[in-house]
Design a protein around this nucleic acid. Structure first.
Length: 653
RNA sequence: GCCCGGGUAGCUCAGUCGGUAGAGCAAUUCACUCGUAAUGAAUAGGUCAGGAGUUCGAUUCUCCUCCCGGGCUCCA
């Protein structure tokens, strides 16, 4: 057998037998070059460690801290999970088991429609660790499709993956297209159909934890059978695993539902029903400040305010199309005086009726209507999630009516406006997505779609915003830009959206009189900035972990007299600050100073003002700011100016 | 809606192998009047989510319903 020379990343070269696998090489190199090497890369492409290497291959070993290598480690751990489950549940079959962010999952179907319970995770975990301790090598082999089908005779979901691959769709990742199908075998004959690659052997694994059991529809469609999914997390080292688990604990502390209770902001009384919240005074004042700021910005930005009722006759929803398409998400109707009324799931139709209330001229366009409109949607019970997904919520809803020619300019200024306001709330990192014309089922001509899509794209680029393109992901009535933000545990939530609508103006027969006297159809743009005030508040709460910036904080400063003798001066300090428009309270010396400070810190107040003898004598305050910097003898008026500087930009827009 | 898990004091939780319950914090009262993250004592607070069943007896076992959490689906 010919010998080949491989160039290693440190510049050295190594001579090995032709056909040596990456895994053998990794083992041979040992602890020196790549102590924890888990996967090799040849010519910039990840290769299977079981695949043979050939002369001239430039091999780079990725360390186990590399994301890509972690992916293989997680995928291999998923295999071990499947191996364990199939050995513990004879007759079980399996579907897909990919690596995901932070870990992996695998989908199973148990005999007789049995389900996993969380108690099963312990013995699955134990079985997995036995496989890992045995350090079984992963061996790759390939079979022609017909033999592959025979091998997977007992596993219909695997065969379904093959069907999809044979049709040329490789999106499911389990198996590549082509004449052969690849498999991995390890240990006691466990075989999984898999594209690979894997770590060399199971002994490389072990820093994992099974997290939870969930139902999951095959291929994500509710028309398919529901499989039993097990989620796990897997890392290269014990330390990384511990750090991840610690991050999860920390994230749980930022959960907006937990903070809402701890900070006395919002609650969800059972008597109201799922997905319905009440706002307590401290939550409500934050919301009011948010809404006031939003209104001020909108007024400044050329919007006109409108109001609309919470219910409307069915005729409106028939005209808008909601009853036809979305009736199951609407709250059920009320029959009254021979008419049928529905609670509104959207504000759009009302704004259309405002436009249509009289004849409109091109001189009025763009006409920007704005409303903080409460809507009700009957979300699936399993989807309700605190303030982030509720059944009653308030959209900061805007509908802009303009001419075709005005679309590009209007979109650019809209997006700039959206990003500027998001920035004011401290959001700088978000994910933007441009969704284009659906491949099937859409309304409007191509010229319209191109104009609108390019308008959106130009707006994104003018804003210097990175974005992804969801090809065909637009609504049937027009393309859109969505802006998503992540919550404390990394789940994305859609906040802002800008949508072109080629449909609604037709349905409501909107017209304006053009300069030449003809009647023209205006273009309609839907735009929500917060998305929903409730959701935005929830994401904001998690973003700041409850420590709102001064302009938003429910209590901006608390005055603590050192002893009751200082209560008079404390009240004076508070009165002065309140008279200047700040939210300030006083807590008397019924408890020790230390305890009152501790409580104020737990409430995450921006400022705690301690006043004692010295302060009474010199009209000063002791300032304990968030972060625990303590300054003594600050002149009262100087402190007031400091607050003013923080708050003014959000009041005087 | 579907799969898994949960619901004990305002909050965080313990407990009862079936004999109607406890802690810490919070609340209330009293005392303490204190210079930067827990002063002390006392008091009050629970249909053990709701309903049905089994039982002499159910918070505990069984079933149903409601609600909450994590996923899946959905999100106009």
């Amino acid at each position: 057998m010919a010998e080949i020379t491989l160039t290693l990343p440190d510049g050295s070269s190594r001579t090995v037998a032709d056909g040596t696998t990456g895994g053998e090489l990794a083992a041979a190199i040992g602890p020196g070059l790549a102590k924890a090497a888990l996967v090799a890369e040849v010519d910039g492409r990840a290769v299977d460690l079981a695949a043979p290497l050939h002369d001239g291959d430039k091999v780079r070993f990725l360390t186990d801290r590399d994301g890509e290598s972690l992916e293989h480690l997680r995928h291999s751990t998923a295999h071990v999970l499947a191996q364990a489950v199939l050995s513990l549940w004879p007759g079980a079959t399996f579907a897909g088991g990919p690596p995901i962010e932070d870990g992996f999952y695998y989908d199973f179907e148990l005999p007789g429609g049995a389900t996993f319970s969380e108690d099963d995770l312990g013995r699955i975990d134990a079985a997995m660790r036995r496989i890992i301790d045995a350090d079984q090598p992963f061996e790759r082999f390939e079979l022609p499709v017909d033999q592959a089908r025979t091998l997977m005779a007992e596993h219909p979901y695997k065969r379904a993956f093959m069907d999809r691959a044979e049709e040329g769709d490789e999106s499911e990742g389990e198996v590549g297209g082509g004449a052969t199908v690849s498999f991995y075998r390890n240990g006691d004959g466990f075989v999984d159909m898999c594209r690979g690659p894997h770590v060399p052997s199971t002994g490389r694994l072990g820093h994992f934890a099974l997290m939870r059991v969930a139902g999951a529809y095959f291929r994500g469609s509710e028309h398919n059978p529901m499989l039993q999914r097990i989620y796990g997390t897997a890392w290269a080292t014990r330390k990384d695993l511990a750090a991840h688990l610690h991050r999860l604990e920390e994230a749980a502390k930022r959960d907006h539902r937990r903070l809402a209770a701890e900070l006395d902001l919002v609650s969800w009384p059972d008597v109201l029903g799922p997905g319905l919240a009440v706002w307590h005074p401290k939550g409500a004042i934050v919301r009011k400040v948010m809404e006031d700021y939003s209104r001020a910005r909108h007024q400044h930005g050329g919007y006109e305010f409108v109001f609309s009722p919470h219910i409307a006759r069915s005729t409106l929803w028939e005209t808008s199309g909601h009853l036809g398409f979305y009736a199951e998400s609407m709250y059920p109707p009320m029959e009254l005086d021979g008419a049928t009324y529905y609670p509104k799931p959207m504000n759009c139709p009302f704004h259309l009726t405002v436009f249509r209330s009289r004849q409109r001229s091109y001189r009025e366009l763009p006409l920007r209507l704005f409303e903080l409109g409460a809507v009700y949607r009957y979300e699936l019970s399993g989807a309700v999630h605190g303030l982030l997904r509720s059944r009653g919520f308030t959209q900061d809803d805007s509908h802009i009516f303009c001419t075709r020619e005005q679309v590009p300019q209007e979109l650019a200024s809209l997006l700039a406006f959206v990003l500027d306001v998001l920035g004011a709330f401290g959001f700088e990192e978000f994910q933007a997505k441009l969704s284009t014309k659906p491949h099937e089922k859409f309304v409007g001509d191509d010229e319209y779609w191109d104009l609108a899509t390019e308008g959106l794209r130009a707006a994104l680029e003018a804003a210097g915003l990175e974005y992804t393109v969801d090809d065909g992901g637009g609504a049937f009535y027009g393309p859109k830009i969505d802006v998503d933000l992540k919550d404390a545990i990394g789940r994305s939530w859609q906040l802002s959206t800008i949508q072109l609508d080629f449909n609604m103006a037709d349905r409501f027969d909107l017209e304006y009189i053009a300069p030449d006297g003809t009647r023209r159809r205006p273009v309609m743009i839907h735009r929500a900035l917060f998305g929903s005030v409730e959701r935005f508040f929830g994401v904001l709460l998690e973003h700041f972990a409850g420590a709102f910036p001064t302009w938003l904080a429910p209590v901006q400063a608390r005055v603590l007299p050192v002893a009751s003798a200082h209560a008079g001066y404390a009240a004076e300090v508070a009165d002065l600050l309140v008279s200047r428009g700040y939210r300030v309270d006083v807590v008397d010396a019924d408890e020790s100073l230390g305890n009152r400070i501790r409580k104020a810190k737990a409430e995450k107040l921006p400022y705690v003002l301690v006043v004692g003898d010295d302060d009474v004598a010199h009209r000063t305050v002791g300032v304990n700011a968030r972060g625990n910097t303590v300054e003594r003898d600050v002149a009262l008026l100087a402190f007031a100016d400091r607050v003013e500087a923080e708050v003014a930009p959000f009041r005087d827009v």
